[in-house]
Amino acid sequence: MYYIFDGTYAGYICCVFEAFSRKEIDARPTRLDLIQTTLFFESRSIETHPERFQRVFQAMEKKIGHAGMKLFYQNFLADEEKAWLNGFQLLIKLFQSETLDLKNYGDPQILQFHQTIKKVNRERHRMKAFVRFMKDANELYTAIIEPDFNVLPLIIDFFRNRYADQPWLIYDIRRQYGYHYNLKEMQEVFSTAEMLTDESQSLQVSLDLKEEEYQILWKKYFKSTNIEQRKNLKLHIRHVPQRYWKYLTEKT
């Protein structure tokens, strides 16, 4: 039985609620666009009810506290059905049993859960590093990212604290949404998609006059700080996988 939710964490949590109320604990949470065909499978659309996920949230907090809740959220952001299913089944177990200790690394499901979280956190750390802002004529610092997992929600606080005195926009081009900070508050944005995907031409035109100069300086610095005699491209690529290159100023 597929449980089709709206892609939000609240919707995902509502799947747990639904599974218990309908006694369908073998359900598989998924998003509509990920399903190939519903012809041969039973499926159910899950509505996102604020009261329902609040109830599940409170129950989770009682059992595993804030630290444990954070883990389930990070697992959810892996943004893939396999991780969703594993987290979902662990939540079912959590509420069925007296205790579920997430430190039981000998349990394959719990180990997989932690391995997924580790991957998500590695991607989060990478995105803190690999974001490259371009300053445009309106003083807005813009960056495009394409992370493997949906880590944007995990990094925006970091950028808000660090770049508090400059307006910025970080846009996840794969998931078509971003966050804009205007020196006062942060806002989720969706509408700029066309502007950014349009071969960046509209961006080029409105760049800050000094932007290109600093990009060139950064490239020069990147080259000069390398020690030719120690060249080790294998190590280089392990640290900076090729799929990120197109958004890294120094690699373009």
Binding site: H125, K128, A129, F130, F158, N161, R162, Y163, A164, D165, Q166, F222, T225, N226, I227, E228, R230, K231, N232, L233, K234, L235, H236, R238, H239, V240, L248, E250, K251
Partner: peptide, 21 residues
């Protein structure tokens, strides 16, 4: 102002010799 320091440190890129920048 601007900036903070992340206690774990961040490598923003790596040179071709594989060293952290």
């Amino acid at each position: 102002g601007i900036g903070d320091s992340s206690s774990s440190g961040i490598c923003h890129t790596y040179t071709e010799d594989g060293r952290c920048v």
